[in-house]
């Protein structure tokens, strides 16, 4: 790295390194540009190619311009550079992977609703955010001998709904029509083991179908309306 006194490098050598670095960088800029403009390669492989060129040019500039690895404090500098590079990869790749993974399971709208719910902040500056708080009436749906009672539950937003499985098998509650399921308030599946109960908060308004995923004929529905 360049410190006031060029450590172990003559002026001539430094000059050469700048010229070499400049020429190499120039070619590593023009080559990917040429590839993109001419569409010699396409799609993901093109993306990977140009990113590789960028990485190589990064190395070129670090070695020939920044002179990393030369000078008194070189080792610490290299460690910091490598560490930062790893951290950057974690930040960028981590974000891309995580966000796409989150979105493959939940839509932005569902996520927004759930953030509001799970932050437990139902109003900000006197304006309601749509989150539920406190305790609200409870509704029950019993599943016994393959029969759902009641078939339709009508509830107000923020009420709770308890599924009671009195059957001899475990039940997996899914929402919407069979096979092409939808989710309810970010919830894709609710498993209720036999002789157990599960409760959900009705934070999403509208009318919804539900059924047991293993026995699609065991089905019912519920409607959630706004309080006012």
């Amino acid at each position: 790295m360049s410190t006031p006194a060029p450590h172990g490098m003559s002026e001539q050598k430094t000059l050469t390194s700048y010229v070499v670095g400049f020429l190499l960088s120039l070619s590593f800029t023009l080559m990917p540009y040429y590839l993109v403009v001419t569409h010699r390669v396409a799609g993901t492989s093109l993306l990977i190619t140009i990113l590789t060129f960028a990485m190589v040019q990064l190395l070129v500039q670090v070695i020939f311009f920044l002179h990393l690895g030369r000078g008194a404090s070189s080792q610490a500098n290299i460690y910091f550079f490598v560490g930062t590079f790893v951290a950057m990869l974690v930040v960028v790749v981590g974000s891309i992977v995580i966000i796409s993974n989150l979105h493959s399971n939940m839509t932005s709208l569902d996520q927004t609703k759930r953030i509001i719910d799970s932050e437990g902040i139902y109003q900000v500056s006197g304006e309601l955010t749509g989150a539920c708080r406190g305790h609200y009436p409870n509704h029950r749906v019993t599943i016994e001998n393959g029969k759902v009672t009641p078939l339709l539950t009508i509830a107000t937003k923020c009420d709770t709904l308890t599924f009671i499985d009195n059957d001899i098998v475990n039940v997996a509650i899914t929402f919407g029509p069979h096979i092409h399921h939808t989710s309810y308030a970010g919830l894709d599946i609710l498993s209720v083991p036999k002789a157990h109960t599960k409760t959900i908060t009705l934070s999403q308004t509208g009318t919804f179908l539900f059924h047991d995923h293993t026995r699609p004929e065991v089905k019912g529905s519920f409607a959630v309306v706004d309080a006012n």
């Binding site: 927004t112 953030i115 509001i116 932050e119 902040i121 900000v124 500056s125 304006e127 955010t129």
Partner: peptide, 24 residues
């Protein structure tokens, strides 16, 4: 004015201008 009413990390969208228009 007011302080934020959004929790210590001011998670979006609560901290957005739509939900928290004040100075908090």
């Amino acid at each position: 004015g007011q302080y934020a009413a959004t929790g210590w990390l001011a998670v979006a969208p609560l901290s957005g201008i739509a939900f928290s228009p004040g100075t908090g």
